[in-house]
Design a protein around this nucleic acid. Sequence first.
DNA 1: GACTTACTGAGAACCGTTGTCAAAACGATT
DNA 2: AATCGTTTTGACAACGGTTCTCAGTAAGTC
Lengths: 134, 134
Amino acid sequence: MKRNTWQKEAVRSALGDAGGFVSAQALHAALRESGSTIALATVYRALTGLTDEGEADSLQQEGEVLYRACTPGSHHHHLICRRCGTTVEIEAQPVEEWARRTASEHGFTRAEHVVDIFGVCARCSDLADRASRP
Amino acid sequence: MKRNTWQKEAVRSALGDAGGFVSAQALHAALRESGSTIALATVYRALTGLTDEGEADSLQQEGEVLYRACTPGSHHHHLICRRCGTTVEIEAQPVEEWARRTASEHGFTRAEHVVDIFGVCARCSDLADRASRP
DNA sequence: GACTTACTGAGAACCGTTGTCAAAACGATT
DNA sequence: AATCGTTTTGACAACGGTTCTCAGTAAGTC
């Protein structure tokens, strides 16, 4: 039987607070920072659980996996700031259809797709501009 | 000055032969299999070089990086078989535009996107069907 | 409160990848 | 063809993120 522990709740909550995509290690550091004694392995386990249950999305970037609290049960994609990790959830029916059509046109079955946009958000763009042109 | 070695050529050629996305380790194994004495580190270095020069595309899957020989200088996406790695290059102008528009609508700049479709190709589907219903 | 058993913490282990450095070899030059 | 400066290679160590192991802890049940 599945049990509820303060550790799982702490990870869920910290992931929510993060607002964007964060690594397991960053999340662990943040939790320790705020006084928690949670172990790194537990953070990994909790994140895996959340992802399996559809409460979190994950993506790989530069050799590490990033996690984010996501609207459960909804299929969506992400617009992610490369600088600060801030993320916007996007739905795009036309892209869904395009993906399905493209796959079946080539005889592919059981198709899933990865559609993510990486950029620099308005706030980080501003900061960068001000830094380079003072 | 950049030099040409048989090792680089061997990697380029093996990557071409692979036909789909393969890992550095798999490529190294294949090369050794066919009698080459090339070192693993060299395969990694060659693949990094090819990717930098736009002769290969790469993507991350399950904690490892996969490489593929690609049409140089063309922006395209991939339709990849989860079973055998076979890959089809796809161009999709509407998706490009959608990505650009979505990013700018949310104030994001310097946007790049990742758009890949994973599925099971016709041949692998056939094989799976035959295996389960003999 | 006692019991069962899932979960946690600490560290070792794992695995893909990158760094190090002496030896090899490419390519320009003579 | 022999020499030379420099790039590249190969073998292995090191690295970093993630997973495994296992004894100890604690959630939920009776």
